[in-house]
Simulated assay, not measured.
Amino acid sequence: MSVMLRGVHHIAIIGSDYARSRRFYVEVLGLPVLHEVYREARDSWKCDLDAGNARIELFSFPAPPPRPSRPEACGLRHLSFVVSDIDAEVARLATHDVTCEPIRVDEYTGQRFTFFSDPDGLPLELYEEI
């Protein structure tokens, strides 16, 4: 029997400061909240965000250890979001004091992309599909 993956269900992110991370993903990136709950037994928040074709699960935990991401650490490299107008999105992010790297062109697809970071330094990408 062959099992076929049908897509990505969710990406889980642990923020060092839940309120700061929630504000960034909801207010700055504009991801709608689907469900949010405080889990008292774990002293942890869990917020499900609508990221289009997948969800982002934003978590808080008491004193999470830092995870290296630069230089290129083994593991998940970055999270990429599709946009239709990268220039407009970079300009919008700048109004929230989010700095993006210079826009580059993917040498294989010809599409434009850029990177920026969330409040904990998690590398995020904007990838333009027109």
Rank of each mutant, 00 (worst) to 15 (best):
M1R: 04
S2Q: 06
M4R: 08
M4A: 13
L5P: 02
R6Y: 10
V8P: 02
H10P: 00
I11N: 01
I11D: 01
I13T: 06
G15V: 01
Y18P: 00
S21F: 06
S21H: 03
R22G: 00
G30P: 09
L31W: 09
L31E: 00
V33L: 12
L34F: 13
H35N: 14
H35R: 12
Y38D: 04
R39H: 14
R39C: 09
R39M: 13
W45T: 07
K46A: 05
C47V: 05
C47F: 06
L49I: 15
L49D: 04
L49M: 09
A51V: 06
A54M: 11
I56S: 09
I56M: 12
E57I: 08
E57W: 14
E57L: 10
L58F: 13
L58A: 03
L58P: 00
L58N: 00
F59I: 02
F61Y: 10
A63E: 10
A63M: 12
P65F: 14
R67N: 15
P68R: 07
S69I: 08
S69R: 03
P71I: 01
C74R: 15
C74I: 09
G75D: 10
L76W: 03
L79E: 08
L79K: 06
S80Y: 11
V82S: 14
S84G: 11
S84K: 12
I86R: 04
I86P: 03
A88M: 05
E89R: 10
E89A: 13
V90M: 09
V90P: 01
R92E: 10
L93W: 09
A94R: 00
A94K: 01
A94M: 09
T95K: 04
H96V: 03
H96Q: 02
T99H: 11
C100S: 05
P102H: 07
I103Y: 11
V105K: 14
V105Q: 07
G110A: 07
T114G: 14
F116N: 03
S117H: 06
S117K: 08
P119W: 08
D120K: 00
G121M: 11
L122K: 02
L124Y: 04
E125W: 11
L126A: 08
Y127P: 03
